[in-house]
């Protein structure tokens, strides 16, 4: 096939534009990989000369920041377990039972959830947590995150479970299984890829969130990394770029590791039903 001159020009133009946009998006990532190993890192991209681990040594020496990583892990794992367990059971019930207006319930929850974990609800959440006496605890952060993420998680999972034939559990029950057995033996393994999606999504959400822990926590030894990262700012509010870069890299590793693990173990694919 021969292209006319105009078509050729349009193709070259499009490729050039795409390349420029691609480079624009790649720049911060390139900085993100190089800067932590550079003793004199600034906001511009520079290849480290020499390569050094000095930045990391300093960061590891910062107890508050290291404690923050552990706190992030506690809050994320706690939140993820709560969200995944509750969303699976709720979504299963919403999908399989015949509650009238059940889709309405999900949509209303979904609507409110964007408010619950959003900035607008911060004052009421603060007041509730405070009056329950959970202020400055991991539990408070976990509960508030769970409340905010649950509706969306339920929505994702309900859609997923709706796509799984009811006959799986029905055949199990006819074969002699109780509803609970049918759920754990047959339904749960089939739903698992959907749960994995929710787990990753919830983990990323909690791991990266700043506002809720910042408001609900006071003690330094409970603060997660998203808050602790501010210890790499000077009194005047300017970032200490070298340390910030090193800490950011460490901070992002668990999320990357989770993605790699999940895609290795589950591959982000869905079983669905067997095509007849």
């Amino acid at each position: 096939m021969r292209l006319s001159f105009g078509q050729l020009l349009a193709r070259i133009g499009f490729s050039a534009l795409a390349a420029i946009i691609g480079i624009l998006f790649a720049l911060p990532l390139i900085w993100f990989i190089f800067a932590p190993f550079n003793a004199r890192a600034e906001l511009g991209i520079a290849i480290p000369d020499p390569w050094t681990l000095q930045n990391f040594m300093t960061v590891f020496g910062n107890g508050f920041a290291m404690r923050g990583l552990l706190n992030s892990l506690i809050q994320s794992v706690g939140g993820v377990i709560l969200v995944a367990a509750a969303a699976t059971l709720a979504a299963y019930a919403l999908s399989r039972s015949s509650i009238p207006g059940k889709s309405m319930i999900t949509y209303i929850l979904l609507l409110f959830s964007s408010v619950v974990s959003g900035t607008a609800a911060m004052v009421p959440i603060f007041l509730i947590v405070s009056s329950v006496g959970l202020m400055d605890t991991h539990i408070a952060v976990i509960l508030v995150f769970a409340g905010g993420l649950l509706p969306t998680a339920m929505f994702i999972l309900r859609d997923f479970i709706d796509g799984i034939p009811k006959t799986y559990e029905e055949s199990a029950m006819v074969a002699g299984a109780s509803p609970v057995q049918a759920f754990f033996d047959v339904a749960l393994p089939v739903i698992r890829p959907g749960i994995v999606v929710v787990v990753v999504w919830a983990f990323v959400n909690i791991w990266g969130s700043f506002l809720i822990p910042f408001i609900l926590l006071r003690s330094d030894d409970l603060m997660p990394s998203s808050v602790a990262i501010y210890s790499f700012y000077s009194e005047a509010g300017t970032p200490i770029v070298t340390l910030l870069a090193a800490y950011s890299l460490i901070y992002s590793l668990p999320v990357v590791a989770l993605y790699l693990f999940v895609s290795w173990k589950f591959g982000f694919r869905f079983f669905g039903g067997i095509k007849a």
Partner: peptide, 18 residues
Amino acid sequence: PKDRQISMVFQDYALYPH
């Protein structure tokens, strides 16, 4: 159903994929 001592073959076979 579990207490009826019956068996059933489904149209979509309902074989457990895992």
